[in-house]
């Protein structure tokens, strides 16, 4: 009798262990599976829904541009990738040629070679080495989208900008009464150190370009950075911050974050006119 019950007990225990084992995996895999589905299905949905709100009147018409993705599934991925890269490079140089005809200073961003060029009439004024950069989710996805070349097709136009430094460092001085006062004025004219340099350039077609100085990025000697961030929270930058928090995936704002040297960041910001144009390669 005792043996029979023990066997039954063992059987029950074994069954319960099996159930536990299954439940363990079910509980563990549920969030993994959900995450995986979200990550894989959402981009496909985004691709299929054909939302082309990122294209505007300045975009290049579809039939003129090459498709960035070769849509023949039989072609090897490598060849397709090469074709995409070459198409993007071609559009970049076409845009640069367009900018050559412009009399104002323009910007060329070459993320492939990690360079930012300030140009005017085809002459390179300044070459800035990108220390590091990152694309936001939307742009990473969008790079694979068939409409990507149409988006890149013509130079981007600067719509708005904001920065932690002034574009024109104006100092107002009242005329001195005598030569002694005038001598003291010279000290006022000499420039003071700029604060931590951080710039936001917003172009048309939902492109945002964020530049940050890199060489003193982690330095505690820059309390100005903290002040700047509190400015963002308190002031007119609140809207930008709110939209970046709201920027859920896949968002329509295509953002490139770039880290440059302090001098480069400052020179770019001060050199760019209000309606600066941009050629992009990535």
């Amino acid at each position: 009798m005792k043996n029979r019950i023990s066997r039954k007990n063992i059987y029950n225990q074994a069954t319960s262990r099996k159930t536990q084992f299954n439940s363990f995996f079910a509980v563990m895999l549920a969030p993994v599976l959900l995450a995986f589905l979200w990550v894989t299905i959402t981009p496909v949905y985004w691709l299929l829904k054909e939302d082309h709100s990122f294209l505007d009147s300045t975009s290049k018409p579809d039939k003129v541009s090459h498709s960035p993705v070769n849509l023949d599934p039989q072609t090897s991925t490598e060849s397709r990738q090469q074709y995409n890269d070459l198409s993007i490079e071609k559009v970049y140089w076409e845009n640069k040629l367009l900018l050559c005809k412009d009399d104002s200073i323009s910007l060329s961003i070459d993320l492939v070679d990690s360079l930012i060029l300030l140009e005017i009439q085809g002459v390179i004024l300044r070459t800035c080495k990108i220390e590091r950069y990152e694309l936001n989710w939307s742009l990473k996805y969008f790079r694979e989208h068939p409409k990507f070349l149409s988006w890149l097709g013509t130079p981007f136009i600067l719509q708005d900008d904001s920065a932690s430094i002034t574009k024109v460092p104006v100092k107002v001085i009242h005329a001195p009464k005598n030569p002694i006062d005038a001598a003291k004025l010279l000290q006022k004219i000499l420039p003071k150190n700029d604060p931590f340099v951080e710039i936001d350039l917003e172009f048309n077609r939902n492109l945002r370009f964020h530049i940050q100085q890199g060489d003193t990025l982690d330095s505690p000697d820059h309390p100005e950075k903290g002040i700047y961030y509190s400015d963002i929270l308190a002031g007119n930058k609140f809207e930008t911050l709110r939209s970046s928090v709201k920027e859920y995936y896949p968002s329509r704002m295509y953002q490139i974050n770039v880290v440059l040297s302090r001098e480069d960041a400052r020179a770019i910001y001060r050199a760019l006119p209000n309606d600066a144009r941009l050629a992009l390669r990535m």
């Binding site: 981009p43 691709l47 498709s67 849509l71 023949d72 694979e144």
Partner: peptide, 25 residues
Amino acid sequence: APSIGAYVIRVSAPYLTKSAEEPSS
């Protein structure tokens, strides 16, 4: 997710979107 999603788009785009005018070779 950004890398996975980008890869998914790269792989699925040729099958899901219209055919190309210029085949790659």
